[in-house]
Design a protein around this nucleic acid. Structure first.
Lengths: 304, 304
DNA sequence: TCACGACATACCTCCAGGGTATGGAAATCG
DNA sequence: CGATTTCCATACCCTGGAGGTATGTCGTGA
């Protein structure tokens, strides 16, 4: 393997057209440089320079080496900087996952936008997937962080930041009796007797439990008509007239035809969280920067 | 500057995911490799690998170094081969110049074609210019070789190979009296009394002198009506009816309207040479290969 | 022909980098 | 739950390559 320093020296010789001056520029004496060039020639089995009375001239092979060496040196010279920038989290890749319901809340795209603005050297890669897939990807290192609805705190090797809570709203078929009472907030007990379609928790306690608990707190036990594996799919079932559901307010953004949303009144404890999950250890500096950014943004809206 | 061998070692560590195995692959003991990695980390001021109970895992910075190092190593690894191929004349650049009149003879494009077939790694660059410009470019090293009509042997620092001689033909206006006698060869004395338009030698003795000498040998002294700086431009003047000229037979290929060509009969010494000029010293191996190719081709047509 | 400029040779020195021996920590096994 | 295994880290030694100094050689130019 040709040592990089040799190439550097040879480039100096080629550029100066003279070994003596090149040696000076390299901060070394002339004889070692002379030997170095001969060493290169011996290693390659090729004459690189013609020794003239005044200075040296590159042969074709020398010219070729010169050009190759310059590109390699330029590339190699940038390595140290690049690596250091990556280490400081100023450059690199950040893979963020989120569930489709988390992506609906403006905070999530807002946080990504803010991070990209602060860290222009970082390439962000996004992935939308189910909670279980996200957890898997986190543990395997395919993702650096993931926005999820459920508190996955208890999952092995993961750590979770609570980002925000948002209110929940009732969603019912457009033709439903409760949909005709105008846009005023609905007291929770009004939903007693309705058939519920709920998102089944994929991991740990989630919205499902919160909703059931809130109904009990309001004095009734909800009738669970059906469960859905994804928050978004509950709305499809509502639109089909199978029942009503309670979803995070940001789900209204879907504006699904045939579904009417109504705010809920006085439901302590009935809110939908958004959390940001990381690996407990081995997270990249970039991931840590992203965590900081999200925390700062979350505090800026003081938990609203 | 990061030594290339260090990068090589680091790549091995990254690929093996384990220092012990990487050391084995590198043909060295484990402790030096361990130190080498620490040395890299110290030099960059960055942690490159996380030491795990089993093996090591790259940090973001380590991953970045890994990717950068691989590209640099790949490029550097090819250098030796490239340089050696260039030295053997199998790869590189060959700049060939020629006068417009030389380019008309099929031998010249034929030679270039043959050389490209034999040396596919060599990029040929062509330039058409006047004899003086070609000589300049040769001396300054911008060209490796040049096909010229005139024997530039005496020019300082150049050396010339005689490639071939071709017969010359008379060129006259289409309506000229001599043009009506059919395509049979014309004895040179028939041109006595005609007005001649001749190509003036730009350097050393050339066609001009050969033509004048041949006329004297045929018993008459030609009337020089006009001189032209380029062989091709004499034909324009002939077409304009200003006189007749004698040009290399390959000039017939121009098929200029208004010009009729007739072969000449029995003119010893009246022929047009094509020569190949090189720098006397410092020519590249590729240029020498081209010289060989041309010589072989020229011998193949045994001086015809 | 003498001085100068530039590359080559001879010889010495030193340290970067590799080797061996061994320690230490975490995972695995009986 | 020790014993063992498996890696990485540390300590110390040693060699070879790379650099320095002194000097030689060879054209060039005055």
């Amino acid at each position: 393997m040709i040592a990089l320093r040799r190439l550097h020296a040879f480039v100096a010789v080629a550029e100066e057209g003279q070994m003596t001056r090149a040696a000076e520029r390299l901060g070394m004496a002339q004889p070692p440089l002379s030997r170095l060039v001969r060493g290169l020639e011996a290693e390659l089995g090729v004459t690189l320079v013609r020794r003239l009375p005044r200075g040296v001239a590159l042969t074709d092979a020398g010219q070729a080496l010169f050009e190759e060496a310059r590109t390699v040196l330029a590339r190699a010279g940038g390595i140290a900087d690049t690596v250091r920038r990556v280490a400081r989290g100023e450059q690199g890749r950040l893979a963020i996952g989120f569930t489709s319901s988390a992506a609906l809340h403006p905070f999530v795209p807002g946080a990504l936008l803010a991070f990209r603005a602060v860290q222009p050297g970082v390439r962000t890669e996004l992935e939308e997937a189910g909670t279980m897939e996200l957890i898997d990807a986190l543990q395997q290192g395919r993702l650096d962080a993931a926005f999820v609805r459920t508190p996955v705190e208890s999952i092995e090797g993961l750590v979770v930041d609570h980002v925000l809570d948002e209110p929940m709203v009732a969603a019912m078929p457009a033709g439903h009796a409760l949909a005709r009472n105008g846009p005023s907030p609905l007291p929770l007990p009004a939903l007693a007797g309705e058939k519920f379609i709920l998102y089944r928790r994929p991991a740990g306690p989630g919205l499902y439990d919160a909703i059931v608990a809130a109904c009990h707190g309001a004095g009734f036990s909800p009738t669970i008509e059906q469960e859905a594996p994804r928050l978004t799919s509950t709305l499809s079932l509502v639109a089909a007239g199978l029942g009503i559901t309670i979803v995070p307010a940001s789900m209204e953004q879907i504006a699904m035809p045939g579904v009417t949303f109504r705010a809920l009144l006085g439901c302590p404890g009935l809110f939908a969280p958004i959390n940001l999950a990381f690996r407990r250890s081995g997270s990249s500096p970039i991931a840590m920067r992203f965590r900081d950014t999200v925390r700062r943004l979350a505090n800026g809206r003081h938990g609203s």
